[in-house]
Write a protein that binds this DNA or RNA. Sequence first.
DNA 1: ATGGCTAACGTTGTTAGA
Length: 257
Amino acid sequence: MKIATYNVNGIKARLPRLLEWLEETKPDVACLQELKSSDETFPEADIRAAGYGAIWHGQKGFNGVAILARGDDPIERLRGLPDDPDDTHSRYLEAEVDGVVIASIYLPNGNPQPGPKFDYKLKWFDRLMDRAALLLEEEKPTVLAGDYNVVPTDDDIWSPRGLQGDALVQPESRAAFRRFSAQGWTDALNARHPNEKLWTFWDYQMNAWPRDAGFRIDHLMLSAEAADRLGDAGVDRDYRGREKASDHAPTWITLRP
DNA sequence: ATGGCTAACGTTGTTAGA
């Protein structure tokens, strides 16, 4: 079972690239982020024509997450994180596909920091951990996949100083990510490629892609039951270099039966 | 000290991303 996460940066602008990627790499499950689409304008027909069932949690203009399943319909479990009725952002969607619990996550960016956006990021991470703790109690194979907007360590970026002052590398952001990992979540890319420089994002600016000035912020976090089944893991870098590319590359794992 | 892209919204600029 191949499970991927892809921050598409606008599903309408990215539709040709998304459909091409689905056709060429055939993930069984695809978690998408940054749809930048309302529920009504989600391109359901195109995705269904490509052979995927889908659920989505859209929002006009920005945010938005979806879960696609090849030849299957994801069974929705939860839409949005609990415990903050004032949170209007569409950043969390949870489903079950073929016995695996899967969430598509778009953690807040948090810039500029310090400030209210950074506070929101850290609070959102706390709420994610509350939900994640409940999921661990279920003892099912579970994959929390998405754009965490955290560069976990200095080994996960082309230059440790490359994002100095940015919310993605702040000690508080990294501490939250470590606490989350310590809850019992395995960072699949790091587990499979512990000594490799793997990036999932390259800025549109500053000639970042040609310079390979990227970093790793898209993560697939596995419960013990999923980690026991982890096969391969990788990044579909090639798609970052194509026409009209997202600034993120698709990132994936395989789970053994 | 920053944002030179990109996308969306909506109208010739603003917000947001990371």
